[in-house]
């Protein structure tokens, strides 16, 4: 499959995937500045993040590292871990 250079996953993209794969806590506002808020404070547990990571892998055709993802405790860390693979994969493909 030949692809154009991959755009990095944005916080907005991540919030969309989170909502689809794990719903949204009624008490939490995901539209705010949440990049450094721990997932646990956003109402997401490890299962929710596994589901989210699974969806990202399928949507972008990448394989994420288990340990790197397990260590990503905030949206910012999650995005960094994804984008390392995503943009790395894209540049290799190019």
């Amino acid at each position: 499959m030949s692809e154009a250079v991959q755009e990095p996953l944005s916080l907005e993209d991540l919030v969309t995937v989170l909502r689809e794969s794990a719903g949204e806590d009624e008490e939490v506002d995901l539209s705010g500045d949440i990049a450094d808020v721990p997932f646990s404070d956003l109402g997401y547990d490890s299962l929710a993040l596994l589901e989210t990571a699974g969806r990202v892998q399928r949507q972008y055709g990448i394989v994420l590292d288990d340990e790197a993802m397990a260590a990503a405790e905030t949206p910012r860390l999650f995005l960094t871990a994804v984008n390392e693979v995503l943009c790395g994969a894209a540049s290799n493909a190019g």
Partner: peptide, 8 residues
């Protein structure tokens, strides 16, 4: 049902 529980 809480929204967090719907996908699961």
């Amino acid at each position: 049902v809480p929204r967090r529980l719907l996908p699961q």
